[in-house]
């Protein structure tokens, strides 16, 4: 097991390097902090040149990259290029915490609902319930977040006035307030969960259908178990394995993949930070975000694999 983990880590390092290089090159190519200054007539050429030199942006790109890499491997994420020298890590850390909260809560709720919906749909295959659930999942999955997010805002914030449209706290709120925080989590969480529930319920349905066909389900029935016990103990528990591992991988992906949701709901997480940094050409933050996303995808994939082994005794890592 330990060897397996070590081997996975070894494979990940070149991936990390490759992605960081790719992000660096493309970030430097499509955006730059100095670009913001080009059209400001109050900035004399000398001041601009001094600024660019101070940030090291005039050096060859590989030198800039290697400097960044050198700092990164020693655990130094560097300083932001546009936030006037603020440390990158605290900025990323707070965004990461916000996104993780959103991701974990949404995934937990989606998993619960998705598993229930998928199981019932599989057990009552081709029933009205199954057809409605299938259609609903199709719609929920097809509607992009920027549309469902806006609709949620229009319905629950503008029309009904129940929930806030954006942010993580009410304006003026200082310090932690659980109720306020949760209220601000509902709409972005729902927008995200709509898609996740659709995915998980389909996953669960397919997985459950496969399991229900399995011989050991017949064995369980032949033992004289109640149908509820057959489905819950033998069916769901087994069918859950691919769904749970998928959810674990999702946590890894969502850490960086909520750009649209976070922008629509002005949710100060990793996606919004990524977008803002991309626009601003702030590559130290961009790279930090990306590295954390890659790492989290890697870690959660590993967790998913290990989870698989825990949940399914047949799997052993050599």
């Amino acid at each position: 097991m330990l060897r397996y983990i070590l081997r996975r880590i070894a494979v990940t390092i070149p991936i990390l390097l490759g992605i960081s290089l790719l992000i660096f090159v493309s970030a430097r190519q499509i955006s730059s902090p100095e670009g913001q200054l080009t059209l400001n007539p109050r900035i004399p050429p000398e001041a601009k040149a001094a600024y660019i030199e101070a940030l090291g942006l005039d050096r060859p790109w590989y030198e800039q990259y290697l400097t960044w890499l050198g700092n990164f491997v020693t655990g130094d994420f560097g300083v932001s290029l546009v936030k006037n020298g603020q440390e990158v890590w605290p900025i990323v850390q707070s965004a990461l915490a916000n996104t993780l909260l959103l991701a974990v809560v949404s995934i937990a709720i989606s998993l619960l609902l998705g598993v229930i919906l998928g199981t019932v749909a599989a057990v009552r295959r081709n029933s009205i319930f199954d057809i409605v659930a299938t259609f609903g999942a199709f719609v929920a999955f097809s509607v992009p977040v920027f549309l469902s997010g806006l609709l949620l805002q229009l319905i629950f914030s503008v029309q009904l006035g129940w929930l806030p449209t954006a942010g993580i706290y009410s304006p003026g709120q200082q310090g932690f307030d659980l109720v306020d925080r949760v209220e601000h989590l509902v709409l972005p969480g729902t927008a995200l969960a709509l898609q996740l529930i659709a995915v998980y319920s389909r996953f669960m349905r397919a997985s459950m259908l496969e399991v229900l066909e399995a011989d050991y389900i017949r064995t369980a029935r032949s033992k004289g178990l109640s149908e509820l016990r057959v489905i819950s103990q033998h069916g769901v528990r087994t069918a859950l394995i691919p769904v749970v591992t998928r959810a674990a991988i999702d946590i890894g992906l969502i850490v960086g993949g909520l750009i649209v949701t976070e922008r629509v709901f002005q949710y100060p997480g990793m996606g919004l930070l990524f977008l803002d940094s991309l626009f601003a050409g702030d590559y130290p933050i961009l790279l930090a975000v990306t590295m954390i996303v890659v790492l989290s995808v890697f870690i959660m994939n590993l967790v998913a694999d290990l989870l698989y082994a825990v949940l399914d005794p047949r799997i052993r890592f050599a």
Binding site: F146, L150, Q153, L154, S157, V158, G161, P164, T165, A166, G167, S170, P171, G172, R263, V264, F265, Q266, L272, D276
Partner: peptide
């Protein structure tokens, strides 16, 4: 007594927040 400014970087969200009276 107090002015609170909050970010609304997406213009659709900005409009929705105006409509809902949050800003």
């Amino acid at each position: 007594d107090r002015v609170v400014m909050v970010p609304r970087e997406d213009s659709d969200t900005e409009v929705a927040s105006l409509q809902s009276g949050e800003i």
